[in-house]
């Protein structure tokens, strides 16, 4: 493990909002694995961790590094998909407008987007199956379509490392399948994916590496080592038993299981 180059590291990372800590003394190093999952219950600091890594949130103490460098030196190599719920979808903008924002920083805020940018935007929209919606006003999109637009914007950034905050939250089945296919394709292209995820059932099949959070770090390691009853109950506490009970009831009744 120590021989592999470090992808992301956090040291003594603490983030406090008001008087309530969102992350407490989180310390880990993720080697150059390809698909990394960040999991934990609601309010466990998953989004805050991504935001700290991206420098969106200022840590109260501690620091993070990406590719062994300060985030400011490697930003142009990273694409970010924030949580869909964080923005106002009634904003007067079209699908194309939103995806083109992925090119703003890449091209420079004071330069016009050129033909190359237009092509990248169109390709990104095409990849998520939204090209025919490019003139659509964003308030008219479904949850799944909103998520596709956010993914397209991240694709337009053309990073090599993708940080995604709950890309599967509240999406329809066809979008979920599309995202899974897209992630597979990105993996084959050699992209690195860090995904904040909710669904315990799919964790083992999706991820190579898992970070389990509950304000403090519970575990960080290869899925095969980290994904077990002890760490999961440490992460989810009493909530896990309730959750697995509900899952069981649903499975018995043969309801399709969709998480959040």
């Amino acid at each position: 493990m120590s021989k592999e180059p470090t992808l992301i590291e956090a040291h003594n990372l603490t983030v406090v909002y008001g008087r309530k800590p969102a992350l407490w003394n989180v310390d880990f190093e993720i080697p150059g694995k390809q698909v990394i999952g960040i999991m934990g219950p609601n309010g466990s600091g998953k989004s805050t961790l991504l935001k700290s890594i991206m420098g969106v949130v200022e840590p109260t103490s501690g620091f993070t590094k990406v590719y062994d460098q300060d985030i400011d030196d490697v930003r142009d190599r990273i694409s970010y998909v924030p949580q869909r719920q964080d923005i106002d979808w009634d904003f007067p903008a079209s699908v194309w407008d939103v995806v083109s924002m992925g090119r703003f920083a890449q091209r420079g805020l004071f330069k016009r987007l050129n033909k190359e940018d237009q092509d990248i935007i169109a390709q990104s929209l095409d990849k998520v199956g939204m090209l025919s919606f490019s003139k659509r006003q964003i308030s008219q999109l479904s949850g799944g379509q909103q998520q596709r637009v956010f993914l397209a914007r991240a694709l337009a950034q053309q990073g090599e490392l993708f940080l995604m905050d709950e890309p599967f939250a509240g999406v329809d089945i066809s979008t979920e399948e599309m995202i899974i296919d897209l992630l597979k394709e990105m993996k084959e292209e050699g992209k690195t994916l860090v995904i904040v995820h909710h669904d315990l059932h799919t964790a083992q099949s999706y991820f190579d590496w898992l970070v389990l959070l509950n304000t403090r770090l519970v575990a960080s390691g290869p899925v095969s080592e980290v994904f077990n009853d002890k760490t999961l109950s440490d992460t989810y506490g009493g909530k896990l038993t309730t959750m697995s009970k509900i899952t069981q009831v649903l499975e018995n009744k043969e309801f399709p299981i969709r998480h959040k």
């Binding site: 991206m54 970010y80 924030p82 923005i87 106002d88 903008a93 703003f104 920083a105």
Partner: peptide, 9 residues
Amino acid sequence: FDPAFAASA
């Protein structure tokens, strides 16, 4: 539109 995304970029 999206301050978090702006900051990340």
